[in-house]
Design a protein around this nucleic acid. Structure first.
Lengths: 97, 97
DNA sequence: TAGATAATTAAGCGAATGTCTAAATTAAAT
DNA sequence: ATTTAATTTAGACATTCGCTTAATTATCTA
């Protein structure tokens, strides 16, 4: 739980997550998007992985990362626990039972 | 933006938010829920306020705090930006146009 | 097997964070 | 007018964080 909030606290890690919306990428491809050393990116990836926000998949000498629904769902559930207090924006029309 | 993620990163601050789901409370009432000094709680309240996650309302010598939808909506919007990648759990039945 | 490439782990450093106690501020009560 | 109560501000200290460079592990290819 703590690890997830910690993970999304950092702006670089949030950028990494958004970058991965485009699809899986290996560590080098991700690192090339940032003006930061590879070890730093590697560290960020590790924290995101610990938080189950991304999954690592070893393909030969490459390690391919992709978004992991697991962690996102946990954060989403935390969020929903406030819905009794106020509703969040909804789709335009919605019928619910 | 950063201030909001920073605010919800700390477990005490998340507890404060949950506590306020029950309704507005003054600083002393909030502090009494935690085994922590009042100045520390005051500091946490300040960070939550800066993030627009709570609102402060001065009532005489008391300062009443309540949840502020503004900040929650911003985080929620960030969250929704990942919905193209995967859908989050929905209500049981839902018809949407 | 040697050499090159991909990525991580290790070690170290300055900045930011969370906590405390003590002092200051503000408003109410006597 | 003083005192009491509620809360914040200030200052100090240990811990955590994010970054860098250097060293290490694993894999591919000639």
């Amino acid at each position: 739980m703590d690890s997830k909030f910690k993970a999304i606290n950092d702006p670089t890690r949030r950028e990494i997550l958004h970058y991965l919306v485009n699809g899986p990428q290996n560590a080098g491809q991700i690192a090339s998007q940032f003006d930061m050393s590879k070890p730093s990116i590697s560290h960020h990836l590790d924290l995101l992985k610990q938080a189950n926000l991304i999954q690592a998949d070893k393909k030969g000498q490459f390690i391919v990362y992709k978004l992991d629904k697991t962690g996102f769902e946990v954060i989403h559930a935390w969020f929903q626990s406030f819905s009794k207090y106020f509703e969040f924006p909804k789709p335009k029309i919605r019928i619910e039972i």
